[in-house]
Design a protein around this nucleic acid. Structure first.
Length: 317
DNA sequence: AAGACGAAAGTGGTTGA
DNA sequence: TCAACAACTTTCGTCTT
């Protein structure tokens, strides 16, 4: 896991002048080691510095209270807890395989053949697992997701495989859904459209696999908060950190007034960003916001009307 | 001409009988 | 399984800057 010590030192260093969370925003800007983005933000509440683009936790400013991963049930806790070098879940055998070399005497070939026959079934499932992992990696790469999320997704896939949930289903669909779920769990949600675009299966299949997995693995994925989308969308729109904070403020107020109930989180995020950008003097057109967020201008208009009216925000162009 | 606005009809997903 | 429903999209004409 990439958690350079230098970041922590830096954090301490600058901490003296910026104890207020507000000023802490964007003060320790360094590049994200994963995707190179300079858009690092401090998470409210969690006291950690993470990349707005890909969600990589770059530094944690609190004393290390626990492991770098999150566990969602007791089984995962016991399985993830480890001492020593990290065992990667992104390699199909967790990197523990023995290399079988070819023996020119022929004896080795015979043994190999026998072994292959005996383990034929194991091999096919193993092969599909390798394929699934490479697919998860490919998609995670395309979505610029950090290693920790790829690891978690691989692990979840392994878990699904252990429960025999993959058999008879498309590997692609399951792998995509797994990645989608993991993003949600890590608070760096991708829209279904974004995931679909880099997947080899359609939206319908992804949704189906998604629901299926949630049910069978008994996972609880809380509905995505509009706030989770704000950093990335703002970054894509080249908006400053002030706008980002402002948009988050707006969403919080909206949530308090129950304006977000039953509404799509992305539409809310889009509207809040649109309003915040105007208020902050960094106007973006509805079309620009629409292009980035994937919701239509009409929806942005509707949400932004509701928000500005109910929250008494004067949006003067 | 571009952006914003809003009405109206259409679409896909959820819910409850 | 089906119909009702709400959220969202598509389309399009109109107004504003």
């Amino acid at each position: 896991m990439v958690t350079p010590d230098t970041d922590k030192d830096k954090g301490k260093h600058k901490g003296g002048e910026g104890d207020k969370e507000e000023t802490a925003y964007g003060e320790e800007i360094k590049e994200c080691p994963e995707c190179g983005s300079k858009n690092l933000i401090r998470d409210y509440g969690k006291a950690e510095l993470f990349c707005a683009n890909c969600g990589l936790v770059v530094a944690e400013n609190i004393v290390d209270l626990g492991p770098e991963w999150r566990a969602f049930d007791f089984e995962q806790v016991s399985r993830r807890a480890r001492v020593g070098a990290p065992m990667t879940y992104r390699i199909h055998d967790k990197g523990l395989s023995t290399l079988v070399t070819w023996c020119p005497t022929g004896q080795g070939q015979y043994k190999l053949k026998k072994w292959q026959q005996r383990t034929h079934i194991a091999n096919t499932t193993e092969r599909s697992f390798i394929f699934a992992l490479s697919e998860i990696d490919r998609m995670a790469c395309a979505l610029r997701l950090p290693m920790n999320i790829r690891e978690a997704a691989s692990m979840l896939y392994r878990k699904a495989m252990k429960k025999r949930l993959i058999r008879g289903r498309s590997i692609e669909g399951i792998a995509t859904a797994i990645l989608y779920i993991t993003c949600r769990q890590y608070g760096v949600p991708r829209t279904l459209e974004e995931v679909r675009d880099i997947s080899r299966v359609g939206q319908k299949e992804i949704s189906r696999a998604y629901r299926f997995l949630l049910r069978e693995l008994e996972l609880k994925v809380s509905p995505a908060s509009p706030i989770d989308f704000v950093p990335r969308f703002c970054s894509l729109l080249n908006l400053s950190s002030e706008i980002r904070s402002k948009a988050i403020e707006i969403i919080k107020h909206a949530a308090e007034n129950e304006l977000t109930n039953g509404r799509g989180p992305i539409g809310i995020a889009a509207a809040a960003i649109y309003i915040a950008a105007i208020l902050g003097g960094e106007h973006r057109t509805q079309k620009e916001v629409s292009d980035v967020t994937g919701v239509t201008e009409v929806t942005i208009r509707n949400r932004y009307k509701e928000l500005s009216e109910q929250l008494d925000i004067d949006v003067l162009l």
